[in-house]
Design a protein around this nucleic acid. Structure first.
Lengths: 218, 218, 218, 218
DNA sequence: CATGAATGAGGCTTCATTCAT
DNA sequence: TATGAATGAAGCCTCATTCAT
């Protein structure tokens, strides 16, 4: 009945406690599942109601429109997708040299994202799909990314460039390559070929090595 | 009546001439635009008809269902996405030393795909989006990939591994990294951040260098 | 809200109370009228909605498809058409000498069916017309007939054959002649020539006499 | 290719030769089959065109509307159904006492109708069904019946009533009983239970006996 | 005379949303 | 607060009919 801790956790944006009635949680869960399976536009509110075990009207009591329901799902996700960079400890650790190398940073980042995607695959699917069509979501994401991630990421990179560990490419390029490589692995792993056999540990390590070699000039 | 050469070209699958009436071409063009803009599910056939300048019924004279219209667009795209590997010369050139190195091969591949994506961006968007929801499209793609790309790609990789140019990782992994890196660049360039300023030549060269360093152990 | 007792009565199949919202009753009434007038295929759901005074969507909230609406009307009719044989008393009465003769039985049967057809003419029209095109309805009818009518009717006939009242033809033939004669009268009376002047009492009595003479060899 | 003699025969109304192009005949044949199978309203002109092997437009070159096509089928049928009464020889025979008895007349009538229905079952189905919905067809039929059949039938009956062979009921009633009995047999035989095993000869003879006993008071 | 592409009205059905209970 | 019947706009698709070829 209150197994929806993960949902509350996820919807929490600034450590504010989220109030989520039982029905509300069921609606969100159902909507997440269905949007991920069939896409936002192809999912009907009545299907969501049925899967959530509530009346059709109940959905609209909590979310004024279907689009609002989507935003209620996607907006916290926007934040969470970039969360590791927001988490104060995380960034601080890097700058306080708890990570001795860019490689260690990358490794931590990848593991973190791996766990997140694994746990919240449906959310990722929704997020990715709807990003393409709803410019409001896209703008929101870009704003959050630039404001909270870009600058910090850039500083991390410059830090390790100064230390000579990684190559002197424009930070934007390094970010793109890093993100692209990690995201490329995760997409292949969880969305494009999820049914293939995967030795996750090795494949992640190989990916890290690939990335590091790519970013190093010895 | 005239300008739809590119469409005919695109729809051609086995070098068979494609017959495309004027109206049919207009319908396809309109559908491609709208599916790319709003997604398949969110686009109505009446909108397509309006944009194509035909009666709604006309769409259904040419395509039995809306889904058929999607497939008429996506099916040839599936092949074209993967096209360079379908062209015998492309692969032959690699082995007959037209490409002295994996790097040259990658460079050719990237330029080729860059041009393709640039030219057919809407198609790529549709393809990528709908892949997620239509298992028939996904299966089609996997089939084409395995049948026409995988083996050839693998041989190319093994060839350059034998020559010692690239690292001895499992070919599947090398393929993933190569594809991921190229696709990552193209997606960022054309879909995620198309509005940013791009120095395409340099960024592609950087990407190739990144990829090659990642795949080399000197 | 009030007058639809006959409808509820009609839809009742196993003496279970039928719940019929106001709108639902109006939809059924309208559908019965229109199907009877123009036939199922030639009647549009929008016409039905208009005549019922509801929104077209409301029809589909109650009946998933137009065909379901037809079946909701025809299925109970199938049973009712054959009803007197379903009532235990009716058959029992025959054997317990409430009916001294086949003639009395026929007379009771005819009056009963006369009243039914008179009251439910539109239903009869629908039933008879659609029987021809929907094999599911036809099968339903045959099943009900064989299961609930045939055996009982046969026993009644054999009973009066034993008593020497009616001729020793195969019961199937006697059934056919009886049913055909009664139905022939009712169809002519109510469907083929309803506008002619009819002295129902006399004509029914004549028909009974005709039937009895036909089935008697004195 | 010109096996459509039966069609031409059927469409002939007053011994005028009917001109029927190849395509026209195919259209009529196809329409008859489909109207009989699915009903007029549920059959589309494109289906008819397909089954006839002609273009959709061709139908409308020969018949201005779909309804006209139906009438082209039904109108001659209207005549043919009552044809035996129209055929001069047939009636003349009766009045010139080639038929010694009403029974012989009935027997000839029944055999004639049996052959006709057997041969033209689809037409009968169409005719019967559409009679119910198209008042123009119904009126046409009633007019033809009253003008050509009723009077003659009545005179035949009165003739045999005078001779004392059949009972002194109102001719209308005798006609109804005769027609009803014959039609009842044919409907049961060919439409309601066509799949049952039938010994046609015996069953027809039984029916005639039934009818004659019903109409006789000895 | 025949064709079949094109039409647009209209068919059945689904949908997001409202509102009385 | 929750319900679910009701709505009517809109969705996909079919149809009879027209007309240029």
């Amino acid at each position: 009945m209150n197994d929806q801790q993960w949902l509350k956790e996820l919807l929490k944006v600034n450590d504010e406690e989220v109030k989520l009635s039982d029905k509300q949680a069921k609606i969100l869960e159902a909507a997440i599942e269905m949007f991920a399976e069939k896409g936002y536009a192809a999912t009907s509110t009545s299907e969501i109601a049925k899967r959530a075990g509530v009346a059709e009207g109940t959905i609209f009591r909590h979310y004024k429109t279907k689009k609002d329901l989507l935003l209620a799902i996607v907006t916290p996700t926007v934040t969470k997708v970039v969360a590791p960079f927001l988490a104060k400890e995380f960034v601080k650790e890097v700058f306080e040299n708890q990570y001795k190398s860019y490689e260690d940073f990358i490794r931590a980042l990848m593991k973190n994202r791996y766990e997140f995607v694994k746990k919240h695959l449906p959310l990722i699917r929704i997020f990715w799909q709807e990003l393409a069509f709803h410019s409001d979501i896209k703008e929101q994401f870009q704003a959050v990314f630039i404001e909270n991630v870009y600058e910090k990421f850039k500083r991390i990179i410059e830090y390790f460039q100064t230390k000579g560990e990684i190559v002197e490419l424009p930070p934007t390029t390094v970010i793109r390559m890093t993100v692209t490589t990690i995201a490329g692995f995760l997409l292949t792993r969880f969305i494009i070929l999820p049914d293939q056999e995967w030795d996750d540990e090795s494949e992640m390590e190989r990916t890290i090595q690939f990335l590091m070699h790519g970013l190093t000039r010895k």
